[in-house]
Amino acid sequence: MSQFLAPRPVQRLAKFIAAGTAALCLTAALTATLQAQTIGVSIPAATHGWAGGLNFHAEQTKARLEAANPGLKVVLVTANSASEQANDLEDLVAIHRMDALVILPFESAPLTGPVANAKRRGVFVTVVDRGLSEPGIQDVYVAGNNAEMGRVSGEYIRQRLNDSGKIVVLRGMPTVIDEQRFDGFMSALEGGGVDVLDDQYANWNRDDGFTVMQDFLSRFPEIDAVWAQDDDIAIGVIQAVRQARRQDELFIVGGGGMKDIVKRVMDGDKLTPVDVLYPPSMISTAMELTALKFVSDTPIEGEYILGSPLITQDNAEEYYFPDSPF
């Protein structure tokens, strides 16, 4: 810099102009930054199918929002654990000076404090799917309905089996989400003639879905339906059932809305006649709503609980996203 400042007159003039231009640009940039609104979006990393879908929809929505609203900046960060997500929140506040936060908490309890801190700094808070442990922090809450998802699955199986038959259940992992789905499912079967032979955890993945279903098939000579609760598990179940050549005696109800399963439903596959939606695209709902706060006067504060509709052959096309990884 110093050698640049000790030059001949012509260069000095050039330097003067350059500096002036730079200063002007800087001022313009600063003004733009001051006017731009930043939305921080913090979600779990794409470590399994559903989260992959979540990331896909978040990125799509970010691109769409930024293109449609030049004054809006969306910063998307992904975390592999609750503590990493807490660090992300600090960065979003300190470095990106976000005006609004859209967060799908890794776990409710450990992130309640960090989100409350952001809120205290005047950040508008939208919480997605997993509620915080304390009320009154979030401005907007967007979530799927796990109990409803279980209930819709249970009702379909009960009605399809004319209220009598034997079924097995493959659960996810021992978490609140799984518990709510399972309880909703069981409440739909209550007092009826559908007999749940057994339930086992399949950890929301294909391999365990395959193994657990193989063992159910060895153990129970008669199975009329399978509730796989999640589409990844369902893929494993389908293979196990095919291997045992028992695809004509039962049907499978998954959950989530994975493209492979929705495609099967669309094609009228008898083994997977329906699927129950638990849309990862709920992140888009949350981001769009939050953006509305800055680009319009629309009142948006409140709770939005998305339904878990039954995906059937008739409506499957609406829920089919061939480009999504999920």
């Binding site: 990393a45 794409a46 470590t47 199918g49 989260a51 992959g52 879908g53 990331n55 896909f56 294909r206 990844d232 492979d260 999504s324 990884p325 999920f326």
Partner: peptide
């Protein structure tokens, strides 16, 4: 592998 699968599943 997560990157190759775009966070989803390679089939």
């Amino acid at each position: 592998v997560t990157y190759m699968a775009d966070g989803g599943t390679l089939s």
